[in-house]
Nucleic acid binder design. Structure first.
Lengths: 343, 343
DNA sequence: TTGTATGCGTTATCAT
DNA sequence: ATGATAACGCATACAA
């Protein structure tokens, strides 16, 4: 009959109700070990009774820690990014952090704005994707002393903390697999390269593999497509429409979504994979192994990458000095979509 | 030579640099129309010069608005949720809001904790999925006066704001499609039902459709499976292993991921779809239409749902009184995986 | 171990 | 149109 929680209670209300100071309440919340058990319980009882929930803004203002981490990714429409974010969120939740998520739609200018928005929200650290960024973006991060790490790309000499892998080399390796099977004319259905270093580097990897065999990528065998299944289908149809002498016997797709499209379109057209044409992808989506034939692709450890990035950030915030350059392995998953060229 | 931005500048620094009061700086930031153009420019120049970025925590503390919205979803491993979140984020970004994202892994207790975490971060509104929630969760939301809306489910009599559709009815309709083709024995590969009202209601919908034809769902024709392609394959194998007299001629899958698994497994087994067995899914993933045969499924407008939820919240925050119960249409996409039973 | 008091960077109210 | 100033709710250095 006497409780009137008209407004949501604050530290002071709890303190009053428990007959202690706000400092004590703050302590049972943040360093319970520092307060005598009896008193702690008394306070905790009131916290429960009044349904107290911390005021993050006030906390952040007073302590300059928000217990939030920001992630800025190209899109959530890509299962592989979504999966990485899922891993990040799960990991952060375990450690008491919350995720602020922003999407760039592969627009570097928009990325800049999103990064600013997250900094304004006071994130304690930030995860970025790739190394293509507006100069101002990295600048802001540094001026604001916001710890950050880039993902999905790795090079020894990277100027900033990163966790990822060598896209060019992975593409080179899976192309080498094609070349070893005896293919000489390789087609490429690349992802959009603008503002996307990963897509560009994967093409470079294909070229490197070809060059090492004194082969070249024919320019009409390279086509750039947006990230969707239909585009993959279009890409395949285009490549297969090339005159026989220029028609590739194997196709490297910049990602699995394009590869799945290419594979499905081949089946629609009655073109046999891998007998008539070999297809490889990149990412190793969960679906890849279930297709028939199974898609030969590059496995990318997106969850591990996300977790590793989060770990770096938390360690960094904690004042530790974790390794800044972290390379993850990528395996070539050889499945059913590759075989020697028909002769 | 004189500028030493050792610490990140605050309102006061800008004010001093521009020779005005903090109130004025705050005004050029928040209601530029209230300040004379000349002065406004002077201030804006300093804002740019010193690279000022707003301190969200301080803003939130003083104004009790954080310009953030929370979303708590089951998982990002599901493309359909990821897509909805993507839409929400894009919409919020347009309107100056930022997204706080949390994942429950279909655990209602964890959802409670995530909701609390987001409330602590001061979100101005919250998006939830489904109507299965811990009692405490909704309670907390209300006590904290945090506007919220549930998605993915709709009923006229819902006790809280919601935007979605009638899962049972959609399932009933696509099952009716099967029955109209002449199927009598329907198999069901359902998603996990625990803590997932949508999965449960879809099964109810199947039962309703059957009942209206005086048919019943045979209990060994109903199997519950986790959300992945492999599980869909297992499910199909199980149903096809039933003795001929009990074997279903058509299969309702609780979602497209299971349906895709079922379809692929049928193809692996040399079972022809739809001649030997019809398969329907639920969600209409982008891939569904590209499969061969194309997957007959229920189209769910996940992006529109997310945007609608965000709109409701923003309107609600703005003090408007938007419609609280919003039903979205779901179309049955009849494609190639359904046909009359072989006779 | 507990309490007191100050300050965190804004917004908003009230003057001017 | 602009300035002075009091909250906002908490953490923390310091005192007891």
């Amino acid at each position: 009959m006497s409780e009137k929680p008209l407004n949501t209670p604050n530290l002071q209300d709890i303190a009053t109700a428990a007959g202690v100071s706000t400092a004590t309440v703050s302590r049972v919340l943040n360093s319970p070990a520092d307060v005598r058990p009896a008193m702690r319980e008394r306070v905790e009882a009131q916290i429960r009774a009044l349904g107290y929930v911390r005021h993050g803004a006030a906390r952040a203002l007073a302590s300059s820690r928000s217990f939030t981490i920001g992630a800025v990714i190209p899109t959530l429409e890509s299962a592989i990014f979504a999966s990485g974010v899922d891993a990040v969120e799960n990991y952060l939740a375990e450690t008491g952090y919350t995720l602020l998520l922003a999407v760039t739609n592969y627009d570097l200018q928009h990325e800049y704005e999103q990064v600013q928005a997250l900094i304004e929200r006071g994130v304690d650290g930030m995860i970025l994707v790739g190394r293509d960024h507006d100069a101002g973006t990295l600048n802001m991060l540094e001026r604001q002393r916001c710890p950050f790490i880039t993902t999905w790309t790795y090079t020894e000499e990277a100027a900033h903390p990163c966790v990822g892998f060598d896209n060019a080399d992975a593409a080179r390796r899976i192309t080498a697999h094609l070349l070893e099977l005896g293919h000489k004319r390789i087609g490429v259905i690349a992802g959009v390269t603008e503002g996307n270093d990963r897509a560009r580097e994967r093409i470079i990897g294909v070229r490197t593999a070809l060059r090492s065999r004194r082969l070249k990528l024919q320019e009409d065998c390279l086509i750039e497509k947006p990230y969707d299944v239909g585009a993959g289908r279009d890409g395949l149809r285009y490549l297969m429409s090339l005159p026989k002498s220029k028609r590739p016997t194997a196709i490297f797709c910049g990602n699995d979504v394009l590869a799945i499209g290419a594979l499905l379109e081949a089946q629609h057209m009655g073109i046999h994979v891998p007998d008539d044409v070999s297809i490889v992808g990149f990412d190793d989506l969960p679906l890849a192994e279930h297709l028939s034939p199974g898609l030969t692709t590059v496995h990318v450890p997106s969850r591990r990458m996300g977790i590793s990035a989060a770990q770096y950030l938390l360690a960094s915030i904690a004042g530790e000095s974790p390794a800044t350059h972290n390379e993850l392995p990528t395996d070539i998953m050889v499945r059913g979509t590759t075989a020697p060229p028909r002769r």
